[in-house]
């Protein structure tokens, strides 16, 4: 039985899939027509739309970051509203630790687009203290799947250095996910593997991405991950 990420009706899932689809189209199409505000207006359910913004984290900025486009002020305000309405969890240590990494990626991406989010209400405080990555490959892969919205193009130099020592572990995680027919996890780990794809592209990355683009074609979230991975790989080094 494949592990699917089909949206569950009555949850934020459908909105997340709609937003993922809109982001994917924005990344694939030429031009600068994507507006978060327009998406939220068209989706009808503003509350679910804002929740989707929170779920996808920094990924909502990929059309701007990867295409080198300016972030409209209205869209920045919507992200700030989503953070305020849906603050990061504070009372569960493990969740909070994961959210800290997600928030750091969001803040970093916003900064790259000229928006200072450091004082936003609802953000998990980004502390400099970092947790070391899990030493074993399975827990590492599980963590990285959950942190996909901090994956390239949003990784910083420290993370890239850590990942450079864990290439095999990342690839093992990708292979495990493919064998488990978990296309979304596989796509996320493939995306992580692009962390230095310009200089050292793992040989299995290209066939894995192609596989996922075909078998994951019906899943908007899988396609968002593979599309971000492709754009990241072809992006000139910073």
């Amino acid at each position: 039985m494949p592990i699917t990420s089909a949206p569950t009706p009555g949850t934020v899932g459908p909105a997340v899939h709609l937003l993922a689809g809109a982001l994917t189209r924005a990344l694939l199409e030429e031009g600068d027509g994507f507006r978060l505000g327009r998406f939220l207006a068209d989706s009808g359910d503003r509350s679910a739309g804002l929740a989707a913004v929170r779920v996808l984290g920094a990924d909502v900025l990929t059309p701007f970051v990867l295409k080198g486009l300016p972030l409209p002020g209205e869209d920045a305000a919507l992200i700030e509203a989503a953070v305020r309405v849906y603050p990061a969890p504070q009372d569960q240590p493990r969740e909070t630790a994961l959210w800290r990494v997600r928030e750091a990626a969001l803040v970093r991406a916003l900064a790259a687009l000229g928006v200072d989010a450091s004082g936003w209400e609802g953000l998990t405080p980004v502390r400099p203290a970092r947790q070391p990555p899990a030493p074993e490959w399975v827990p590492l892969a599980v963590d990285l799947v959950r942190l996909a919205c901090a994956a390239p193009p949003f990784t910083d130099a420290t993370v890239r250095e850590e990942l450079a020592r864990r290439r095999l572990d990342l690839t093992r995680g990708l292979v495990r996910a493919l064998l488990r027919r978990d296309a979304l996890s596989a796509a996320r780990l493939a995306r992580w593997l692009t962390f230095d794809a310009v200089t050292a592209r793992p040989p299995l990355l290209a066939p894995a991405l192609e596989h996922l683009e075909i078998v994951g074609a019906d899943d908007a979230r899988v396609l968002l991950e593979t599309t971000i991975a492709r754009r990241t790989m072809t992006r000139p080094p910073a």
Binding site: W137, V138, L168, R172, V175, R176, L179, R180
Partner: peptide, 13 residues
């Protein structure tokens, strides 16, 4: 050495 660990993991699960 590269992939036996993955296969044992999956078939153990």
């Amino acid at each position: 050495h590269l992939w036996l660990p993955v296969w044992t993991e999956v078939f153990c699960e």
